[in-house]
Design a protein around this nucleic acid. Structure first.
Lengths: 327, 327
DNA sequence: TTGAAAGCGTTACCAC
DNA sequence: GTGGTAACGCTTTCAA
């Protein structure tokens, strides 16, 4: 920058302003500076800028997994919503290990992000302190934590399960089992489980059985393996409430192999309205979450924050039942 | 850092060294510094480090899509392989739009990454110039481009299709159709298509028909929709070679609805050994690509580069046939 | 094994 | 409309 300044015959300060298209710099001077900078092959140092201004142009985002159609959609919507502002996303995947979050957040914070988007509302005390001491804007997504950091864009995983259990009860199912990940590995999944248990209790159904499909992320193969290991014992229940569509699909496929009639003998439900739920035959009854909208709203909130329009935000994204042929 | 130094009673310089695990700092002092830094909630400023050392600590990675089990696995392996070096990944998704790559690369380069990992070997001239003028290490993955930038970790998509077509021919199939994305939207998919066509020709089979499932990314629903729109006309062929497992699964499911017997009347093959291929009943014949290994090898190469051990690398990652019940 | 001084390239702030 | 000065938080270098 000094070299450019020398070549043009102005001060480095003026060059700095000109290159940022500062209006206060004389238009002609600005053009001259631009040209000479180009000629000299000058490359603006974004790192130095980020250092000096304390603005990194990053928003840090944590996701449990990047290989998940719903999270991927949220990520893309978020990314697109911030792109025109020149904001880039710094992504961190916890792979469903909560203890990873702390390290991850530390790494992400080291880059001075201007905001933090966390998937889920459960965080260790250390993580909370770490974040609070930074005092940066936080958005928690895909959840509706009772005691949030700051902004929230999500839905209640427990409540979302209500509509599934009510639907099953309306269709005469009583003996429910919940198929999900092992205790402690998928906290939103655990919320769904408690939601199912609570709703069943409220409706006067027998206690919901818990079937463990292994540590998160549980997917098709885990659902299939669980069903295979249980075999006809699955018929102790008349409905399997699965934590996600892939799990439900795995279970459903194994049921076909076992000669269990779905939905005749057994109802199966999923969660998330994944592509496989709609393609499966029969279609899997599921809950649709507007993942894209979560990302869009989060991006909108961030833009508001960066523009200085800050306000309390707790957005409840609607979820809806998608009735299929498995219930 | 100054605050930590004050609290510990040493100079900032010693703190700096301690936090970087510099061996020259007394082990006990180092531990004390670590502890107090933690207690104070100190977060190391990577931006300042990047500024001072002229090293960003970033590796930029482009992926066609993050919602893809294979790419996700490559990404995770890459990320893990670089984590101990303190290198973070800056991710950019093209969403299968090649024209996006240029913008994306420009954005990523603005962050001064220390290396660039590109998925695929097709790039616009502008992109090529952009990258070359920066003179940074480049690894192209998931492909084996004839004229690569630099390092390569991948496989020939065309050759991978050979094993599928040979397998089909061995099993007596002759009238092949390729089901893939529209021309121009998925270049690795197009390579698979040409591979299928070439191999069929070499084996003396009739010309391979091309069935267009729409713009990339094509997935279950596109496969299903294509099959539904064709109906019994699918029986003009005796094998459908699908560009990916999800597409194959969509086609397979629709065939069941249409009353087409797979593999009796029609063989179906996929690509990528996705979970759905193994869970599907019957299992889908597919090609397994060691996605994780691609990420691991790429990370290893990058570590070599950062350690100053640079050498030509063109790693051909093996792919293998996974024979299922659909062929 | 530890510390002091200087500086990385930019911009905030104030002066003119 | 332009310029001078200082500083951002760290590390390189040299000295003790």
């Amino acid at each position: 920058m000094r070299d450019v300044a020398k070549a043009v015959g102005v001060s480095p300060m003026t060059v700095s302003r000109a290159l940022r298209n500062d209006e206060t710099v004389n238009a002609k001077t600005r053009a001259r500076i631009q040209k000479i900078a180009d000629d000299l092959g000058y490359i603006y140092d974004t790192t130095a800028q980020a250092f000096r201004t304390r603005k990194s142009g990053f928003v840090a985002v944590t996701l449990p997994s990047i290989n998940n159609a719903n999270f991927a959609e949220t990520y893309c919507a978020l990314s697109n919503g911030l792109a025109d502002r020149g904001i880039q996303i710094l992504l961190g995947a916890t792979n469903y290990r909560i203890e990873r979050e702390e390290d991850l957040v530390r790494q992400l914070l080291a880059r001075n992000p201007e905001a933090l988007v966390l998937t889920g509302g459960y965080h260790s005390d250390v993580t909370r302190d770490l974040i609070r001491s930074r005092g940066l804007p936080v958005i928690e997504i895909w959840d509706l934590p009772p005691d949030p950091f700051d902004k929230v864009v999500g839905f209640s995983n427990a409540k979302a399960m209500e509509i599934i259990v009510e639907h099953l009860a309306e269709n005469g199912r009583r003996k429910l089992a919940f198929v999900g990940a092992s205790e402690g590995s998928d906290l939103r999944g655990a919320d769904r489980r408690s939601g199912a248990i609570a709703t069943a209790a409220r409706l006067g159904l027998p206690p919901v059985a818990i079937l463990d499909a292994g540590p998160a992320p549980v997917s098709m193969r885990h659902g299939a393996a669980l069903a295979a290991s249980m075999g006809k014992a699955l018929l102790d229940y008349d409905a399997l409430v699965c934590v996600s569509d892939p799990v439900a699909f795995g279970v459903l496929n194994e049921c076909r192999r076992l000669g269990i009639d779905v939905p005749g003998q057994l109802a199966i439900t999923g969660f998330g309205n994944f592509e496989v739920a709609a393609i499966s035959e029969p279609r899997i009854t599921t809950v649709d979450v507007d993942a894209k909208r979560i990302g869009e709203v989060a991006a909108e909130i961030l833009v508001d924050i960066f523009d200085g329009r800050s306000q309390e935000r707790r957005e409840n994204i609607r979820v809806k039942l998608v009735a299929g042929g498995t219930s």
